[in-house]
């Protein structure tokens, strides 16, 4: 039985601290990944890239332990890297060779024969959508093509965990959506676990099921998207038929005079917080008395942006 099967974890970080000289880039970070799509969120300089590099075994933890598929890093890095795919943040290209030639080389480095590597190189380039550009020299590739190429080289050796560092950097909105869909496809069709690092909340929300938030090298939040954006207690989204009644009094004013805390949001939406001991039915009674109708009523959910800002504030 492999250590992975015994432990059940693809990735386990325990109390990991990484230093660059005197600077502590990661400070006592602990979390596990057992599968699925995990987003690594944080502002610039939060330690996301350092964390990914530590998982790959490029950085040695000054303290704590990193285990990838049950293997200690960086001691067993070569074995672990057989099952890791890495999409770096910066552009990575061999300018003088064609895309398929370089992918073949990458496949051979991963341990495949030249024939197998070339065959898989073609498949991977087709999969990421640049199969028709395979014989072009890489110096002629656009930014979007290079991003897709980085994905292809990460997939060439059939990894089980894909580490993506800002994969949508430098892409136009359409290219960005295509890249995010590609990442979802990889995870869904190939059953590959994904650790996606980004400072773009919509990217992470689009792809991931679980989110780990880092700030200043510390883990400040870890939970599923559902948990992080859970409905808030005693808080509701309300939209009424009319902004104000016949006397010109806005519904918000009526609510506030009844002791409800209100905040106007986009498109006439009100975020209403019920006073202690008050039931939601009271809102409908007040609307009736005000002379309007409630057309939208739903428990208010925390947006990912709010959860992120809360985590940042708490840290």
């Amino acid at each position: 039985m492999t250590q992975q099967a015994a432990g059940g974890d693809i990735l386990r970080l325990q109390d990991v601290t990484v230093r660059y000289g005197a600077f502590e880039a990661l400070s006592r970070v602990s979390f596990d990944v057992s599968g699925g799509r995990v987003g690594l969120l944080g502002p610039n300089g939060a330690g996301k890239s350092t964390l990914i590099r530590t998982i790959l075994g490029f950085n040695r933890a000054a303290r704590g332990a990193v285990r990838v598929f049950g293997l200690p890093m960086p001691q067993k890095a070569l074995e672990a890297r057989r099952r890791l795919g890495y999409v770096p943040e910066r552009e990575a290209a061999a300018h003088t060779v064609s895309g398929v030639s370089f992918l073949t080389y990458m496949g051979q480095i991963a341990g495949m024969s030249r024939v197998d590597a070339m065959e898989r190189g073609h498949e991977a380039l087709n999969f990421v959508g640049i199969g028709d550009q395979r014989y072009r020299r890489m110096e002629t590739y656009s930014t979007g093509m290079l991003q897709r190429f980085k994905m292809a080289q990460a997939l060439i050796h059939d990894p089980k965990l894909l580490l993506l560092d800002e994969p949508s950097n430098g892409l136009d909105p359409e290219g960005r959506m295509e890249m995010l869909e590609l990442i979802r496809d990889v995870a869904r069709l190939r059953n590959v676990s994904v650790l996606l690092s980004s400072h773009l909340l919509p990217d992470v929300q689009h792809v991931c099921e679980r989110i780990v938030i880092l700030n200043k090298g510390r883990l400040v939040q870890d939970g599923s998207v559902e948990e992080l954006t859970a409905p808030r207690e005693r808080q509701y989204e309300v939209r009424t038929r009319d902004h104000a009644n016949a006397a010109g009094i806005p519904f918000q004013e009526t609510l506030e005079s009844a002791g409800f805390a209100c905040r106007a949001e986009r498109d006439g939406l009100l975020r209403v917080t019920l006073p202690e001991g008050e039931s939601p039915q009271r809102l409908f009674v007040l609307a009736s008395e005000h002379g309007t109708q409630i057309r939208h009523f739903a428990p208010a959910r925390t947006s990912l942006a709010e959860a992120f800002l809360q985590a940042m504030g708490a840290s």
């Binding site: 890297r81 795919g85 890495y86 770096p88 910066r90 552009e91 990575a92 290209a93 061999a94 991963a110």
Partner: peptide
Amino acid sequence: RNNLIEVLFAKPLS
């Protein structure tokens, strides 16, 4: 400079 060394060492290459 072309960031290839990072990609190479992310593969099982010592």
